[in-house]
Design a protein around this nucleic acid. Structure first.
Lengths: 96, 96
DNA sequence: ATCATAGGCAAGTGGCGACTTGCCTGTCAA
DNA sequence: TTGACAGGCAAGTCGCCACTTGCCTATGAT
């Protein structure tokens, strides 16, 4: 599982998480469309695809393939490391 | 207030937050020492100083000056945007 | 079978951020 | 008042990452 923080570093990737939160299980093209429409992010399909790879490597997005479609689902579980690391009053501090 | 996510992107800055969580109100030199001792991070003083600037710009660190010392305090408040953005069941989604 | 659609692979580019080096300012102790 | 200590400023280097371009594969409709 790659670095969650690095995954969150890019503005476009955060927008993707927002888009997936609006509606789960979208395809690459749907995500591209929504990014353009709702978030004024105009990137090439490949750019978005690469971002999705990063998000998936970080465990923030899971994918399932059906025919020629690939659906993307949001998983916020990795985000809880942030809470556990600094916001938690009784931490298991210092791991990385 | 600068980008909290960008501030969290660097490994060294996350370690600084850990160090400040161990003990609040440390000076630059104390932070440098702890990073070396406890986290095996050997960077120049200036590098750490620049990281602290980024953290302060993001609101994650506050500073107070006393004489020739400058003390650094941790402020985890900005981290809650993460919870509010994706972990919260009822979000105020999409702002940035 | 053929063509449009959904997605993937790979190489290249440009800019930004992390880090260093060198020097300067300010504070306190002797 | 001079020297040690805490910190700041500015410029330069370097590597990585975001993004593009070009082409390829696979699935499904007609």
């Amino acid at each position: 599982m790659a670095d969650v923080f690095e995954a969150l570093a890019a503005h476009a990737r955060r927008a993707i998480l927002d888009v997936l939160r609006e509606r789960n299980g979208q395809t690459l093209f749907e995500i591209c469309t929504r990014l353009t429409m709702r978030h004024s992010i105009t990137l090439t399909r490949q750019a978005i695809s690469q971002h999705l790879d990063v998000l998936e490597a970080a465990g923030l997005v899971t994918t399932r393939r059906e025919g020629r479609y690939k659906f993307h689902d949001l998983d916020t579980t990795p985000l809880k490391v942030i809470v556990n690391r600094w916001l938690n009053p009784n931490p298991t501090a210092g791991e990385e």
